[in-house]
Design a protein around this nucleic acid. Structure first.
Length: 501
DNA sequence: ATCCATGACGCGCTTCCCTG
DNA sequence: CAGGGAAGCGCGTCATGGAT
């Protein structure tokens, strides 16, 4: 029985219950669809997001109604909203959140670039609107989970996801590794001292490009192991990474082992630049245990002294939105980004390093001035620095800034993410669909796949594109100022300025 | 003998580049 | 702009050599 149309006022709205798997109310005159009860007798997964039912339904309309439908309600808009409803129901989202996503999609639909999108991409854009609204509402679903559950190709989705962010000028917050430290370590109950030292090591790791592009939990576990054995008695063999994981019920994996090696390598190389370190060490772990507290304390200066490659930080969304150049990005506080850091790995011959050439701190005496307060401030470091390690072989290598550091060859770990996402999800009521058995879903994938692996890790590469710098060029004063601000504490900058004058 | 770290290899995923 | 292929990267597994 026909009823009145909300749009044209004609008594021509019919129900299409007879159409397979679809229940709609549509006007035969103007083609308008009653949005309420748009979908009914089908499960979210049953259709697999095809649009066959919608097309089937259209065939049931009169020719004039089909024409009107095309004019008044663009197919892409209609099917996109349909997709939003389905995805929203899949994730059991509230009506308001689904409406928000639909509104976002409607606004997006007015964007001039949308016309170039194919229908399949429009459907992905619609799904992206849902995902964005979920993220905005603090529902921490990783992108890949969302795609897997929705039956969407993650790579195709991420392109459109980023397109929406760019077009609509939306900024999302990405979980930082710092925010995950407590979550990962909480079950082990390592204590605040170990946790705090772990956080400092993580900060160093971020600037040494150990974190970027990698799963967070292996980095955290590896760092916590180093912090733990540094702050506890020498347990000999029992201090091995494997035993540590066993004791504290972490899932030992190759990525953790690799991250541990990288962190050790990095700390070792940085530590050799400490002006009061004399001689060369064969046992990196013994050295790191001895000087770790000092190395993390002076990480900014050590990194600066060691070498400087500031990166494009590529934090996906921030960069895209503001259309800022990589060099602009670092001005905006790169430190909060998981994707940013300073690369201390594998210097190629043509890679740029920045020394203290503009300051007077190149010789050891001035370096000692910069680091001098360490022996007052650092409780363990002071005594440690005065002791001569047993495996020292006197030479002068320490006075040169080494230019190679941690090797990569890195791995990713997913099993230990269980507790991370378990915790995250547990704190929210979005736990309806969880694929805990699928390890591939448990990676660190909040970052869109197409931006997950920042390839340009070096400063000169980052600025090359926008500023025409060559890797052999000297950094300008402005660049060095940027770098200075990025990697040094204010106190250190002041001290260097004083030395200059 | 056992444990541990690490190299080699294959798989899957991501990113880049080219073509239509 | 979209799609497909190639290359790069991370991870898991197995094997091996050194240390205890």
């Amino acid at each position: 029985m026909a009823s009145k149309c909300n749009y044209c006022g004609e008594d021509a709205v019919i129900s299409t219950n007879d159409a397979p798997s679809v229940s709609m109310r549509v006007c035969q005159e103007c083609g308008s669809v009653n949005d309420e009860n748009f979908i009914s007798d089908e499960t979210p997964f049953s259709r697999g997001f095809d649009n066959t039912s919608a097309f089937d339904f259209k065939q049931s309309l009169s020719k004039s109604a089909r024409n009107a439908l095309q004019v008044t309600t663009p197919q892409g808009l209609k099917l996109g909203k349909n997709r939003i409803t389905i995805v929203g129901q899949t994730f059991k989202l509230g009506v308001s959140l689904i409406d928000d996503a639909a509104n976002l999609y409607e606004r997006l639909f007015r964007h001039p670039d949308i016309i170039h999108k194919t229908m399949s991409n429009k459907l992905l854009l619609a799904a992206a609107c849902v995902y964005i609204k979920m993220r905005e509402n603090d529902l921490p679903f990783p992108l890949r989970w969302f795609c897997k559950i929705s039956g969407i190709c993650a790579n195709d989705f991420s392109r459109n996801f980023l397109f929406v962010l760019k077009c609509m000028d939306i900024k999302l917050n990405y979980p930082s590794i710092e925010s995950e430290i407590d979550i990962v370590l909480e079950p082990a109950k390592l204590g605040s001292k170990v946790t705090n030292l772990t956080a400092e090591i993580i900060q160093l790791c971020q600037k040494a490009w150990i974190v970027s592009g990698r799963s967070h939990s292996p980095v955290i576990i590896a760092a916590s192991h180093i912090a733990w054995y540094t702050l506890t008695e020498n347990k000999g063999r029992k201090s091995s990474l494997r035993d540590y994981c066993k004791e504290f019920k972490f899932s030992y994996s190759r990525p953790i082992s690799d991250r541990s090696s990288e962190i050790h390598e990095t700390i070792f190389e940085l530590g050799k630049s400490l002006p009061w370190v004399i001689g060369s060490y064969k046992d990196k772990k013994l050295f790191n245990r001895k000087y770790l507290l000092e190395i993390v304390k002076y990480r900014e200066s050590l990194l600066y002294n060691h070498q400087i490659e500031v990166t494009e930080k590529l934090v996906p969304v921030i960069d895209m939105k503001s259309n800022t150049s990589p060099s602009d990005v670092k001005e905006k506080g790169v430190e909060n980004s998981d994707n940013s850091s300073i690369n201390t790995e594998k210097l190629c011959p043509n890679q740029k390093t920045v020394s203290f050439s503009n300051s007077n701190v190149k010789d050891t005496s001035d370096m000692n001035k910069i680091f001098s307060h360490s022996k007052d401030d650092n409780i363990q470091g002071a005594s440690a620095a005065d002791e001569r390690p047993t495996d020292i072989q006197p030479n002068n290598e320490h006075s040169q800034n080494t230019q190679e550091s941690c090797s990569s060859g890195c791995k990713m770990e997913s099993k230990s993410c269980d507790r991370v996402y378990g915790k995250l999800s547990a704190s929210k009521d979005v736990h309806e669909v969880v694929y805990e058995s699928d390890s591939t879903l448990q990676k660190n994938i909040f970052i869109p796949p197409i931006l997950k692996k920042p390839r340009k890790r070096l400063y000169y590469e980052a600025v090359e594109d926008t500023e025409g710098l060559d890797c052999n060029d000297e950094l300008s004063e402005a660049h060095e100022h940027d770098v200075d601000q990025y990697i040094r504490s204010e106190e250190e900058i002041k001290e260097i300025k004083q030395l200059k004058h």
